[in-house]
Design a protein around this nucleic acid. Structure first.
Lengths: 341, 341
DNA sequence: CTGAAAGCGCTAACAT
DNA sequence: ATGTTAGCGCTTTCAG
């Protein structure tokens, strides 16, 4: 008895078993199963049949140890419930599907210490690449990534100092751009609605950029509200109601994410407020999902699918890279902001 | 040169390096790093320091091969963009976080052949367990799972014949139950709105159960519409408009998922239809996200988080299991159905 | 085109 | 409490 893995007991089928069944050497079986060209057609056939008959599944652990090659790509993201990240994963998948590489996903829960554990765990499998969301990591995480010897790509964000390669957008610029659009359209009493999650660095950067953009026009944020917990329509409604009650003279609401903006939109429509006349609103992310709402929310495209694709392309390239790819977030006007004066 | 893994070149740090640095044997280092109790405190300290100083990250591949133990759990789901599955993964995570086990996620894209490849790939890493969505798989997939020798749990669905263990709800019963509630509340001209995706077996089963439930009251579906593509508000609106235009006398709309029902709700509200008087509607899944809509959609809780938890518990147990766990989907009345007569 | 030998980095089992 | 030996299942390398 060697471990508590339930594989114990059922002896594992090995290359040797297939080799015996097919009447060839282990080496030949190995060649066939790796689709190497230098095997005769008749031998190939024998081997495939033997493998199928026995139900042989290769042991990648042994293969990886012997070859020093692992076709896995680690992907570390904060969470799967935030719809941003499934989209990033979809982009990564689109590229990796054309290769031998397979993504392996881990979640950091917006916690650097937890993230450190996940990165350690992933690197211990010697993947062919590592894609990590964000630029803020523990010192130990950064050290591990630097020392890993594999392509490391930090994604989502370009406002900071990556360990190696980075693909993302500037959230600072996204916030600033949104502010400029809003000011240009005549809004002046502006409120911000976002998460109190201090560890959502990208939202913080958007807010900082937003305030800087307002400052260019001599405007300061009139009010702000922070919530704990998940974004969603209910949350969006609740925080909007609280904020509007407290500061009824606001003429614009800037949300950390479209999900909350959608809740706010529904709230304002319920109240019969004139949008975008009496009050305007904007979010962030450009979630397609929301397309059927009564109005299209003004937002910026976070380019998350493109980010996934670009990061995966760097990994697929197979070279250590320090590329810095800054995509441009695009402002989408929608129906919840007035036309510029 | 042994492979194209970028690790080549940078020689990998091994136990031996740490052992030399700390002045002890490899075996002692191995014991310390696995937190085994039978090492003196002073030795532990020396070893940890040496490992930290060198930046050593263990090679799990070698460890797994030697110990025949792999702390990974394969999870195969159709897609991450359907919000159902992130919730299942969250449930799995809640349980596995209390163990050494780590989930590894793969997606089948609602395609049995693709799924077969993903399962093969996962099994080749000799995980400690395999959690697979659905009961419908290729013959080869079923054979592999049966032969794997590890705990295999099929999730989401209990209407069918699992390979080993299964945790889910009866979608047939969910559809039937919904039909009964609707009939009980006096609706008679009933339309169905769902995906044309033939491979979404669970939606098919709900529809079959729904029709059976209507049949109990002598009712047949008055009309139905199928769409290609993603569910969402826009899709929900569009199919609702098409269906209502074609069959304006419908008094109830049954949707495959709450996301589409939400779009339909917004459409009907736009049109000024009296809900739930003139027309009622129901969906499926009970997405929390939608809580802030103008009305709460009638739905059934798909118990997806509980399903993830229960499946992970079986894997964590570590025993081969043929448990069949059928959870009960709960009808949630919301605001879009009339009270029973 | 096929086979034999050596060894990947680690841990189980057995010493001491 | 620590060390020694053997070997996990595969692939690389070298021979034919």
């Amino acid at each position: 008895m060697r471990g508590r893995n339930p594989f114990d007991g059922k002896p594992q089928l090995t290359l040797r078993d297939v080799a015996e069944e097919a009447g060839v050497s282990e080496m030949t079986v190995s060649r066939v199963l790796r689709n190497r060209a230098d095997v005769s057609a008749s031998t190939r056939k024998k081997v495939f049949e033997a493998a199928r008959k026995l139900g042989y599944v290769p042991n990648k652990i042994a293969g990886a140890l012997a070859s020093n090659r692992v076709n896995l790509v680690g992907v570390v993201i904060p969470s799967l419930s935030n719809m941003v990240f499934p989209d990033v994963l979809a982009g990564i998948g689109e590229i990796l599907d054309g290769t031998e590489l397979q993504p392996v996903v881990g979640t950091s829960k917006y916690d650097e210490t937890h993230e450190e554990g996940v990165i350690y765990e992933m690197l211990s499998w010697r993947p062919s690449g590592l894609i990590v969301a964000g630029l803020e990591h523990s010192a130990a995480s950064r050290a591990m990534m630097r020392a890993s010897g594999i392509p490391v790509i930090e994604i989502m964000d370009t406002d900071g100092d990556p360990v190696a390669a980075a693909v993302g957008i500037s959230h600072e610029a996204a916030g600033r751009e949104t502010a400029r659009e809003i000011v240009r359209r005549g809004y002046r009493k502006i409120g911000y609605l976002g998460a109190s999650n201090f560890a959502d660095h990208r939202a913080q950067k958007r807010l900082a950029g937003f305030e800087a953009g307002l400052a260019e026009a001599g405007i300061t944020l009139a009010d702000r509200i922070l919530y704990d917990g998940q974004s969603g329509f209910g949350t969006g409604r609740r925080i909007t109601e609280t904020l509007m009650t407290r500061s009824p003279d606001l003429d614009f609401l800037y949300y950390n994410t479209d999900m909350n903006a959608a809740g706010g939109l529904l709230y304002c429509l319920d109240k019969g407020l004139d949008i975008p006349g009496r009050i305007g609103m904007a979010g962030f992310n450009a979630f397609e999902l929301l397309d059927g709402l009564p109005m299209r929310i003004a937002t910026m495209d976070s380019r998350r699918r493109d980010i996934g694709r670009a990061a995966a392309e760097i990994v697929a390239e197979g070279e250590l890279s320090t590329a810095r790819i800054a995509l441009t977030p695009r402002f989408i006007e929608g129906d919840t902001v007035r036309a510029p004066a």
